[in-house]
Design a protein around this nucleic acid. Sequence first.
DNA 1: CGAATGCATGAAACCGGTTCCATAGACCCA
DNA 2: TGGGTCTATGGAACCGGTTTCATGCATTCG
Lengths: 341, 341
Amino acid sequence: MRESQRRPTIADVARKAGVSKTTVSRFLSDQAEYISEETYRKIEQAIQALHYEPSQMARGLKAKQSRLIGILVADIANPFTTAILRGAEDVCHRHHYSLLVCNSDNDPIKEQNYIRTLRSHHIDGLILHTTGANQSVLLALQKEKTPVVLLDREVAGMHVDLVGMDNAQATYDALNYLVCQGYNSIAYVTAPTADISTRMERVQAFQSFMADRKLQHTSIVFQIEGKASALPDFLTTFMEREDAHAKAIFTGNAVILLQVALAMQQLGYRVPDDVALISFDDPDWAQIVGITTVSQSAYEMGVLAAERLVARLGGDAGDPQRLYVTSTLQERDSTPKVAKG
Amino acid sequence: MRESQRRPTIADVARKAGVSKTTVSRFLSDQAEYISEETYRKIEQAIQALHYEPSQMARGLKAKQSRLIGILVADIANPFTTAILRGAEDVCHRHHYSLLVCNSDNDPIKEQNYIRTLRSHHIDGLILHTTGANQSVLLALQKEKTPVVLLDREVAGMHVDLVGMDNAQATYDALNYLVCQGYNSIAYVTAPTADISTRMERVQAFQSFMADRKLQHTSIVFQIEGKASALPDFLTTFMEREDAHAKAIFTGNAVILLQVALAMQQLGYRVPDDVALISFDDPDWAQIVGITTVSQSAYEMGVLAAERLVARLGGDAGDPQRLYVTSTLQERDSTPKVAKG
DNA sequence: CGAATGCATGAAACCGGTTCCATAGACCCA
DNA sequence: TGGGTCTATGGAACCGGTTTCATGCATTCG
């Protein structure tokens, strides 16, 4: 009743096959050119028999690489994030990397801790959907030549690859569409902008668009904070204004969209009868409910980010690239055309 | 212009502090009792100055642990999965473990590969949301005393901890509710059951309940496969039957729910006017659309699974446990009471 | 006052791989 | 037949930590 508790090592395989560790190592690294057929077969058998699996840990120690890619996301509950994960995961799997997924939960402190942890695990590269406020730790990573790819959001002072979208353009497109549909009073609801470049870009684009068009009193930026009543209060105020004849609400991402939709429902306002609704992100349920969205292919963003990283790991030393996925307007029932007033 | 490319090692710290590796190691492992104050301070400073971070890799090699927990999920795009991830991540973070997230995409081959990969990374434990068909690889893990916690689904022949729900009971509860509301013709739509215990249990519970109640011709089990038209065809057939006066559709998870809702919309059937709708899982949008669901706290499942694993890693050698989260019926507009016919 | 004990520290082996260098035998050529 | 090349293999050092064991000095005790 011998329990084989200890997992087999390369030495066990070598012993069983009657060869040296070196030879087994050669077998494992596909340098089989100088291995005789007989030896090859013996090693093969020994590995089979022992269920041997080489230890990435030991391997990485010498080779100074782990085949681990860290991905640090700001909110794992967000469907946008999930889609990114799926894209990144697919690419990594294809290139025999594994993904170490961490969730900073929008907390810069947690983010910083995670960057440390990831470093301690010798990640070969990092995909970062940042909270925005951790340059210093990141610089340590950079010094060690660990490539970093930024996702969706900038980090001040970091000149590295970035995969995102043209937020200003996407915002303009959406607003143009709303104006064409006849809306002349638009509220923009965003999560706290803090250090998050994407959110700031969108808000700024919104404000400058509205100002350019001289659509007065129509832009309101609201930050959802701790106070539960803040959102209903804001929405009520907006809905009760009588300075415009066609109102629309534009939400900054899918999480906010959900909040707004829920709040409107509770307040008794109906979409699109009382107000139009449009949002960034395109969660799968938007189709069912019939909400017009600005869809950015999150899956593709994940793919692009991972591919960029893999390219860097493969030796690409070119200048930092900025890759933008295109956004498309998914027109649905929540933004019908209204007659001009 | 000295570029500090190589990341500092314990030897660098030792040199800078003017002490031996051993002493630094003691410092790192919190065995500071026998370190003089002066030495302590010198080491502290050296670590600060060098931005030193010990390598988990080197550490794990000797210690035979990685502080890595693998979590292998069947479908990372499913909100149910995401909620689990969040729960598991929170617990792991609290206990200074990192999560290696892999997505088998419901593919047993991919699952098998991932288990291998995870093993090669020396994971300390595995949380497995399985496709159901990989006992053999798992047994290798078990032999090496790597604890495994099953999530939601059984693996035949594995006697390990499991976190899930009482599927039969939850199914009965939901059906009882439907019957009380007056529905006498119910269709159950499930994803392919294959080797997935949860799905099988639910289908079986459904069938036995319907048979017990002698509600004839009212149960239809449908497996969504490749054929795109299969679902609309099935729904049309069901809707056109005239043997019952109040129909309801029961979907096996949120992904299927989405498909069914979309298909019904396209076919022109309205919920709940033409047919009631109820589903397992409780995606956040169910609240907006107003769909009655059987909600199982996925977040809690993630927490429980991770806690179980951490307990095992802490030395708990008790018998395998089965933990069930409770499910609650979220009553919404999609299942209104109907008058008896 | 010599021996025992406690404190603070270091040398070296070890974990499981990879890799550099050495070497033995076969083969080839002059 | 001796020296050079090629093939197949092994010994040993190394990666960056941890751990065991040893040791030198102070202090304490019989």
